[in-house]
């Protein structure tokens, strides 16, 4: 994402900071990889569906080719102990990457009990009980949005 920001805002000047922030926040709310959503939203803005398609293809094609090529090479060496051990270590560290991302993101909930409780319920449902994601989200996402709506209404009344 820092690279995307650099290219779109600083280098090519296709977007200003405000436009970039707006597109990024939209990309984050929507399901799907953020960077893919950014590419679709920016591509559409300039060239409609053709732009969206071009941006999506441009973003994904090379990494896809590279990663599949790497996987093919890797499969040749997967039985070599050194390679296997190295990847076990990378995987353990990479799990830490995801955990750290979750912990950093949880800071936005700081001090607000209802969202914290919601996040905990989601965590237990998916991470501990291993409830299918479809089921968990079908119940919890509307509930959480409704709660956010109610809190907003309550704040309004208080004013």
């Amino acid at each position: 994402m820092p690279f995307a920001h650099h290219m779109l805002v600083e280098q090519r000047r296709w977007l200003d900071e405000v436009e970039f922030a707006e597109i990024l926040s939209m990309a984050q709310v929507l399901p799907g990889p953020n960077i893919v959503n950014v590419s679709v939203l920016v591509g559409r803005r300039f060239q409609g569906w053709r732009g969206a398609l071009a941006a999506f293809t441009g973003l994904m094609l090379m990494p896809l080719v590279v990663v599949l090529a790497l996987a093919t090479v890797y499969s040749r060496f997967a039985d070599v102990d050194t390679v296997r051990h190295a990847f076990n270590g990378v995987a353990a560290a990479a799990s830490g990457l995801v955990l750290a991302m979750g912990i950093k993101m949880s800071r936005v909930l700081r001090g607000r009990m209802v969202p914290i409780a919601t996040a905990l319920v989601v965590f237990v449902a998916i991470g501990v009980l291993r409830v299918p994601l479809v089921l968990a989200l079908a119940v919890l996402a509307p509930l959480s949005i409704w709660l956010a709506w109610r809190m907003r209404a309550a704040r309004k009344d208080a004013r």
Partner: peptide, 10 residues
């Protein structure tokens, strides 16, 4: 909060 719960679970 849904996103946070999902990522930590992950």
């Amino acid at each position: 909060p849904i996103t946070v719960g999902m990522i930590v679970a992950s």
